[in-house]
């Protein structure tokens, strides 16, 4: 079966993000593959290893996004495709979902995997919106896939929800967003690194995808940094660890934290 996994290039989680005059900057911090997407790549590779099939990684963005794709290739994806078009430069989530859906369809994917969210905008809705465009079931927050039947076109997943695990069965094709519990992402292998470094990654424009420029549905009116919060530190002392712990508990309850 064909598995599509969607990855995004984002600023490193350790980057110091600043907002000035409505412009977000991460300085000279490196761009990396969205950490949540690494779990999606891992899930895609594990599913392909267990049930057969091949995994193609897609990323929407400019040339820089190829870094994320190369990371996915080095982890073991068979192919990678960049979706890049000037008309997508300021695309919102709905517009992005249309482009990603077109890519999944063009490739004949039967499973579309996503990280549960991207650490830059944190909207967390791209998987569901892409599923909506495709008309596929959206299986969000997937922590495990206990059963997958490519021939019978069914999939059973465990969703990690606040109350615990919810087991859901669905038809294929389907779109899944993957959470951390699924499996620890593998490191790129040295052989994978060589393959990725030598790979020529094709770029698909909107014309290649056979769609016109999707319209944004959301207009960003302004961006501002959250107000700085006053923080004070207090070191709790006591005669014994038990005494310190008791004082700490009193503090936590007293401050209404719990």
């Amino acid at each position: 079966m064909k598995i599509a996994v969607f990855v995004k290039q984002v600023p490193d989680s350790a980057a110091k993000i600043t907002v000035e005059n409505g412009v977000v900057s991460w300085g000279d911090a490196p761009l990396v593959i969205n950490p949540w997407d690494e779990y999606a790549v891992e899930a895609a590779l594990l599913l392909a290893e267990k049930h057969g099939g091949e995994v193609t990684a897609y990323s929407l963005g400019d040339e820089n996004a190829k870094e994320a794709l190369k990371h996915a290739l080095a982890m073991g994806c068979q192919q990678a495709v960049l979706i890049s078009d000037p008309a997508l430069a300021n695309a919102d989530t709905a517009a992005v979902a249309r482009a990603l859906a077109a890519a999944a369809q063009k490739d004949g994917a039967e499973l579309a995997l996503f990280g549960k969210q991207a650490i830059d905008w944190d909207s967390g809705v791209t998987p569901s919106m892409t599923a909506r465009v495709l008309g596929w079931p959206a299986l969000s927050l997937v922590a495990a896939v206990p059963a997958l039947d490519p021939a019978g076109k069914t999939i059973k997943v465990e969703r990690a929800i606040e109350e615990g695990r919810q087991v859901v069965e669905s038809r294929l094709p389907a779109a899944l967003s993957i959470v951390k519990d699924y499996a620890e992402p593998r490191y790129p292998s040295f052989m994978g690194i060589r393959k990725a470094a030598q790979a020529q990654i094709p770029s698909w424009t909107l014309a290649d995808l056979g769609i016109s420029a999707p319209a944004n549905t959301v207009e960003t009116l302004g961006i501002s940094a959250p107000p700085a919060r006053e923080v004070s530190n207090e070191i709790i002392t006591g005669d014994s660890p038990a005494d310190i712990a008791a004082k700490l508990v009193d503090k936590i309850i007293g401050e209404g934290v719990l």
Binding site: K70, H71, A74, Y187, P188, F190, I193, R194, A196, A197
Partner: peptide, 16 residues
């Protein structure tokens, strides 16, 4: 550094 070099660096850094 080549792309290969940088990816090797990143991989070992991720491990450590």
């Amino acid at each position: 550094l080549t792309e290969e070099h940088r990816m090797v660096q990143n991989m070992v850094r991720e491990f450590t």
